[in-house]
Amino acid sequence: MTDTDFTTTGPLAPEDITAESPFTLPGFFEALAEGRVVAARCTECETQMLPPRPACYACGSRAVTLSDQPRTGEVISYTSVNRPPSAFEHLAPITVAVVELDSSARLTGRVAASLDEVTIGDRVELRVCDPEDVGIDPGFDLSYETEWPVHVFDLV
């Protein structure tokens, strides 16, 4: 994990918070579409936060910077969504997991495997997908979300 070429360290100024910055969702998903998982890293306590945000929930500091994340990690917990929201209905059952990346950042995501193939501690790698290729009902996306990629974990 390395700090990105975005050199901003908080407290963020208003002009730092634009759709081009991964500190906002449009900027975060634009980086993700390019294959980069960008977290906020607290320079005070080293907490890694996905998606990035302007303050650290662990210690309260606004001295956050951006940090490229590893795409590999391990399964902390998992289940199967047997009755998903209607926009995801035809994907059922959906295996989902909480994954801790090797940086210690945690995020939830789908796992491209059946439930009985997954167990706690499994190694996984994050893959970036186009929502249309996944088959999520396009009506699910809000107008500003339509270009945002979705992520999925593969067992490795």
Binding site: P51, S77, Y78, R83, I94
Partner: peptide, 18 residues
């Protein structure tokens, strides 16, 4: 941004705790 868009539901999130 990350959890709803992964297709989770209330039972699924609590299943992760369980």
């Amino acid at each position: 941004a990350l959890e709803q868009r992964s297709g989770i539901t209330a039972p699924a999130t609590y299943a992760l705790l369980a």
